[in-house]
Design a protein around this nucleic acid. Structure first.
Lengths: 197, 197
DNA sequence: TTATTTCCCTAACACGCGTTAGTATGTTAT
DNA sequence: ATAACATACTAACGCGTGTTAGGGAAATAA
């Protein structure tokens, strides 16, 4: 009889969630079937339901675990006594690291959250909106004390956040350059594009 | 009896393709059903098949019409006798305009091409790869004659192209700033981020 | 008007989906 | 060894999907 393999301190549910992230990333949430997932896990589809409540629950878990990580990090950064540019650089490095090291999860939560159902959907959208507002506030503070070019802060946030998702292509292209080089290049262009002079 | 309304010089098929773009953008290709599309068009699902061959054909048309526009434009730009930075600025402005004025199509072709079937899939992926290579070559030329910072060109391309897709949020947020302001801000940050000094 | 073509309808198909019920097997605790 | 539990299986459900067939209505051509 097949059995879901677990390593120490990893529940069977966590194994499923992880495999789901990879599958949702590859095929998209709607196109990925529970039978696909079962096969990836090495078990029959019905057996998954001993560990999870529904397919959507998998998406919840992915989206909110990612969202929480970003929320906690921006809490930290906001509290630090450093320049606006330094805050933005820290945030961007965090985004890049997350996209590099937790690729599947982050990608899925970024692209597939539309398929969440209320009340999770509105909740998620709210968190996203708030996060962007807080990011924009940092930029605006930087503009006021002339660290940063006079630009529209919300637009700058859009650019920053979406640029990071380009790392998807880096993953697919088999990492032609190292993660560190990737990070430095992105910081150079993006933070450099904001900085005054 | 219901009938698909057409204006002059617009075929019924074109009406369907346009509505499909809006629907695929809103729900995603897989989640959008032919019955949804039929309702949007004002007709029964089966009736659509008098005008189209399949659901996938709709995706083909969208993806390749967008891809062709970008390919033709980069042809033009490459042929011009202007600096690398000017070429990049022209390309970026084109990307932004396309994303602003043909939002649904461009968005769909950017996010849903995964659901194309071979041979269209490989064809599309190829075109994309080639386009990015050509874009990167322009950047590399700019680096050689010191117009542009010493950065990894393919990474810069990723950033540029993905940043543009942030315009999606601008569309959803009901266009707080004008399209022109949006464009100028994006150019300032992105082209500014590349430029040497 | 009549003949022809274009378009849309209803009905139905085969299929894949997420999920549940009921049962058997393997693991852990007594 | 035996009881209790966790986890897997098979079988099946109701539903929504893309698509086809065949017939009737509306527009166009004669």
């Amino acid at each position: 009889m097949a059995r879901i393999k677990t390593e120490k301190n990893v529940s069977r549910k966590e194994v499923i969630v992880t495999k789901a992230a990879a599958l949702f990333r590859e095929k998209g949430f709607k196109a990925a079937s529970m039978r696909d997932l079962a096969e990836a896990v090495g078990v029959e589809a019905a057996s998954l339901y001993n560990h999870i409540k529904s397919k959507t629950e998998l998406l919840h878990e992915l989206c909110f675990s990612v969202a929480n990580r970003f929320m906690h990090y921006i809490d930290e950064v906001e509290a630090e006594k450093i320049t606006a540019i330094e805050k933005i650089e820290k945030l961007m490095r965090f985004h890049i690291d997350e996209m590099v090291h937790h690729y599947e999860e982050v990608y899925v939560s970024d692209r597939e959250w539309k398929h969440l159902a209320d009340p999770y959907l509105s909740n998620y959208q709210n968190q996203r909106r708030i996060y962007r507002k807080r990011f924009a506030s940092i930029i605006e503070a930087g503009i006021r004390n002339k660290e940063i070019k006079k630009i529209d802060a919300p637009t700058a946030v859009l650019i920053m956040l979406h640029a990071v998702s380009g790392i998807e292509s880096w993953h697919r292209s088999k990492q032609r350059i190292s993660a560190e080089e990737l990070e430095e290049n992105m910081i150079t262009i993006l933070v450099g594009g904001l900085t005054n002079k």
